[in-house]
């Protein structure tokens, strides 16, 4: 098999293999925290940090870790970086830490992250694994940013806390509630599928 150019490993995460829109991985935080754009961005950045650092270590240790305990090792590595992200947010951005609540520790069980270790970082060289992790993280962050922006603008009439809608705009309460997450995500996935279908034909 001919090797793909390395940059492809980064680009595929943005659209063709987008973790949220195409692979439908990591949907629990995607649905739960995207009430405001700030939360969506923070979750995206935190997950990307964990993903990149874990992929780095897993790829580095891929020939050392025995096959039987690989999942256990990945989980310990992921959990370590998640705890770092969690403590860091709590110390420096307490407000964000409070509004994301338990969903930062829950990054540990985000299947996007464990999935990338098992499917990619454990089988590929360091450089490619890092590019793959960065691409997947960026794709995850972008999807969360779009989803949370739609929900915040329609549900609260603000974007990153700034009033941007006209004065008589009546907020769509449902967008701030859990159903709003499902509705918006459903529309986004439908749109992504529609665009991909059009590109193929």
């Amino acid at each position: 098999m001919k090797e793909k150019p390395a940059i492809q490993e980064f680009i595929k995460g943005l659209w063709d293999e987008n973790p949220v829109l195409v692979q439908l991985l990591g949907l629990c935080p995607t649905l739960a925290v995207t009430v405001s754009a700030e939360n969506g961005l923070a979750m995206g950045v935190a997950a990307t940090f964990v993903l990149v650092c874990s992929s780095f270590l897993v790829s580095l240790l891929r020939n050392v870790i025995p096959n039987q305990v690989r999942i256990a090792s990945y989980i310990v590595i992921i959990a370590t970086f998640v705890t770092i992200a969690d403590r860091f947010l709590a110390a420096y951005t307490p407000e964000i830490s409070k509004s994301l609540g338990p969903f930062i520790p829950l990054i540990i069980v985000n299947c996007m992250i464990l999935g990338r270790q098992e499917a990619f970082a454990s089988k590929n060289k360091l450089g490619r694994s890092l590019l793959d992790a960065l691409g997947m993280g960026a794709g995850f962050t972008l999807a969360l940013l779009v989803l949370s922006s739609v929900r915040e603008v329609l549900g609260s009439g603000t974007w990153f806390g700034m009033d941007i809608m006209w004065a008589s705009f009546s907020t769509w309460k449902v967008m701030s509630l859990p159903p709003g997450a499902f509705l918006t995500l459903g529309c986004m996935i439908a749109a992504a599928n529609w665009i991909n279908r059009r590109r193929q034909t």
Partner: peptide, 23 residues
């Protein structure tokens, strides 16, 4: 198996203990 898991968890514990000092 024992050595690898022990080293990884020790390393993890060490990093987190250090971090806790700051945060």
């Amino acid at each position: 198996i024992i050595i690898v898991l022990t080293v990884i968890t020790l390393f993890s514990g060490g990093v987190l203990a250090l971090l806790d000092n700051f945060t």
